[in-house]
Design a protein around this nucleic acid. Sequence first.
DNA 1: AAAAGCCCCTGGATGC
DNA 2: TGCATCCAGGGGCTTT
Length: 271
Amino acid sequence: MPELPEVEVTRRGFADRIAGAEISGVHVGKPLRWPLGCDPDSLVGRHVKGVRRRGKYLLIDLDRGLLLVHLGMSGSLAFDRQPGPAGPHDHFDLQTNQGTLRLHDPRRFGAVVRCAHEGDGWGQKLLGKLGPEPFGPDFTESGFLTGLRQRQSPVKQVLLGGELVVGVGNIYASEALFRAGIRPTVRASRVSRSAAVRLYQAVKAVLAEAVSKGGSTLRDFVGSDGAPGHFQSGAMVYGREGLPCRVCATPIKLVRQGQRSSYYCPVCQKS
DNA sequence: AAAAGCCCCTGGATGC
DNA sequence: TGCATCCAGGGGCTTT
């Protein structure tokens, strides 16, 4: 579920409240996508310095090492002073003197991984190949244009690939392409320069707008304060197959690309 | 080397 | 009501 906006909204929801906390206990449920990589009890006594985000990963910095958290498809984090009893889908609790951070993840595609530092084995494997942050200085128009020109995959797949920019998932890829007037099926290398410039801006704009709206809640996403997002109700194409385009009223189309759905308006997206 | 496919897992919606 | 099928926001790994 969670793309960059949902992860960022989650981070903002608990980063300040957990900063400075001392870990008092760790409870693990069923196995997640990757192993924690340490004895849970070895985290007791560590202090939380802060929470950063890289792509769709959260980095919880400790006074020694860090925890990488990924929400997978169905994960969400809650931070509460008085958490209720763990349910069948609560698979990781980080108890601290300031509250408990709990990962709820029915599908268990998410993970919590302990790293000595960002460049160690797991850190390198998970973070090492990530492209530039969409709001960071490394995400440049010229770099994005060059990257598109070099790739032969459909432009939608390139956005999802995370090499030219991180954080764009299935919802925001479709939304950004709509805003840029580009069909998801077009080969990246064939996107015109002007369209690519529009896409560069659209990626940033869509993600920023989604963050400001608290992300998208399709089924189960909630921020760490429990609040759902509101972006999805304003989606131009995602999940709107057969419904009239909000701009030109033409029915929105659905195509399958790499086992995932892409939505587009056949009239507004001609490039 | 790049691109396409295959899985991991559970639950909700849909159809017969 | 019951059961089978399909689909879902990600992404590493394997196969072409």
